[in-house]
Design a binder for these strands. Structure first.
Lengths: 353, 353
DNA sequence: TTGAAAGCGCTAACAC
DNA sequence: GTGTTAGCGCTTTCAA
């Protein structure tokens, strides 16, 4: 068979890529040699390299990585499952995970659970069926995590992000939600506030419940009694809070400050305050774009999703590289960013009433 | 060989998944039968199904989709390349593409070009090597798109998003940047403004240049002369604009309104106005969270990234399903969202000076 | 340095 | 119905 024959063969199968066999035929060498050239092995003669490269160029050959992986066993791919890739927090996490994946010349499979345990399960098992080398996952509340054990046993490395595992023995990197909330609320207390409202997500969410705990920690430390009337948990983060805030404002002993448990809620609180034409001191959990554009700027307890992704990938790759030390959970510190809204003193708020 | 033997075999290879061969051995059937059961074919006896399922359960078997795809040819995967998965626009696009991919039981590979043509090229070729069924791409400016032709010829379907192809004959879905900008600027003109500043991205970016054209279109229609002194293009979207805005404000004939060419720039303009303690009418291109929380709310020309993703995937899957009609470019309309900042009349602005 | 050949895990065609 | 087998495209011995 000569070169022309090989070329014809590839052309005969439209929409079908040239294979190493095709390249070998066109170059007049064996497939082993083609493989060596493609993988840059040194033990190939100059002429063979030239012939093979010419054939590759001519046929538009591109190695089929799927076939390669079937043979070698490693897929050079990582699966990432978060709540929602469009959420600012997770999209930043996504990006930083991507950077680490890129550094290892792998690819990243991504999916959003949409807080649905069943959807999460389906996506994770799909990733496992694709034999990803490792998994970075934020598991939604309410699901069973037991099904992951089989995958773990089968040798799929995984690291949990944003939420700790409940029963599994896996690495995790989470944010110090409780400590961060405590710091934020203590900051408000430092400005004289004693009636501090707390708006959060559904308390069955891990992060929300931790932040509420931190809120209570700060009150307790300051000797301020906890008043359930001042706590409101939205069913969804999109829900406006002007109604519950109005109720608190109309009470005998209204709040002079509010702690918002997440960035969406911070925005809802700002809108609600606007509606009620009132101003209160505000500290929000999680930073957001424009937090410094509204007046006053919003003081926040900031998380660092990029660091979370970077650290999670570091842990994951260590496992992939053979580390078998006991699993650990890394708790990332938060950072208080002072912008004005959290430094409105109790006296100033009362004077404006 | 009996069942026990098969189990031992799988156990003998730790970190290595059980294969259909293992399952077949344990279940005491042939691999063909296992394959039929796994794929839910009907022509299998009750007993075989039960035996196979028991073995699958026992071994923790999960089909290797990589091997399956090598055999069947379809990878059930889509590659998405955008500028930055953490950008609000692209993260929304990402999410809507994901939804469509999920509906087809495929997986999504994602990557960010970071506006680097070389990185884009690398990622795209990686996706092609993985034999993705289709590609959704936002190609960065300044790169050659010629290398995609080989992939196109090899049968990889692709659709461009947010930017049209320059030389390739491929489907695309883009936003009516020019028309949207024209509408936004005409809106300002309708409120009496004749001196309208224009702040944008680097004009060598497709979207920025289109929006500047739309800005000029609107001026021309109203018979307002174009004044280059009123146009400022930032080198980066993070660059503050208080300096150039200050220059315009200090001129003989200062602007009474500004058109901001993208959401980050809108924010920069708001900050700059704050610094100069001035208020001008503002219309921004692209909506953003909190646009309705600042006072006044920011009137914007909104895009619909979710629709873009949905439509792009619709086009892509039509191609994958065999559609060979001529390639087309769909131009998505924009929507003007009125919130207050764009309805500040020229008279009101001048009166406040 | 090189070609031939086995085999990764799966599907599908074929024979029984 | 079911077992056997060829082969998807690749890597990797093994001889030569």
């Amino acid at each position: 068979m000569d070169a022309g024959d090989g070329l014809r063969m590839a052309a005969e199968r439209p929409n079908s890529r040239a294979t190493m066999k095709d390249v070998a035929r066109v170059a007049g060498v064996g497939v082993g040699t083609v493989s060596r050239v493609v993988n840059g092995k040194s033990n190939v003669s100059e002429e063979s390299v030239a012939a093979v490269n010419a054939a590759i160029e001519r046929l538009g050959f591109r190695r089929n990585d799927g076939a390669r992986m079937l043979r070698t066993g490693a897929t050079a791919s990582i699966g990432l499952l978060v709540e929602d890739v469009a959420d600012p927090f997770f999209s930043l996490l996504n990006r930083s995970v991507e950077e680490e994946v890129l550094r290892r010349d792998s690819v990243l499979l991504t999916a959003s659970s949409d807080k649905d345990p069943e959807r999460a399960r389906k996506m994770i098992l799909t990733f496992c069926a694709r034999r990803v080398d490792g998994l970075v996952i934020t598991l939604p509340e309410g699901g069973d995590e037991e099904y992951l054990r089989a995958e773990l046993d089968a040798g799929t490395s995984m690291v949990f992000v944003d939420r700790p595992p409940r029963v599994l023995d896996v690495d995790a990197v989470i944010v110090d939600n409780r400590g961060g909330a405590r710091t934020g609320v203590a900051h408000l207390i430092g400005y004289g506030h004693r009636r501090i409202a707390c708006f959060t997500d559904r308390p069955d969410l891990y992060t929300a419940s931790e932040r509420i705990s931190g809120y209570r920690d700060a009150l307790e430390e300051a000797g301020i009694p906890f008043d359930p009337e001042l706590v409101y948990s939205s069913a969804t983060t999109r829900e406006p809070v002007d109604e519950p805030l109005g109720r608190m404002l109309a009470s005998d002993d209204p709040p002079t400050a509010v702690f918002a448990g997440n960035n969406r809620t911070s925005i809802n609180v700002i809108s609600a305050l606007r509606i009620h034409k009132t101003s209160l001191a505000i500290v929000g959990f999680d930073d957001f774009e424009l937090a410094d554009v509204v007046v006053p700027g919003i003081t926040v307890v900031a998380q660092d999703p990029k660091a979370m992704g970077r650290i999670a990938m570091g842990m994951l790759y260590k496992r992939l590289d053979g580390n078998v030390s006991p699993s650990q959970t890394i708790r990332l510190p938060t950072r208080l960013i002072v912008r004005g809204s959290g430094e409105l003193s109790r006296d100033a708020v009362l004077a404006a009433r």
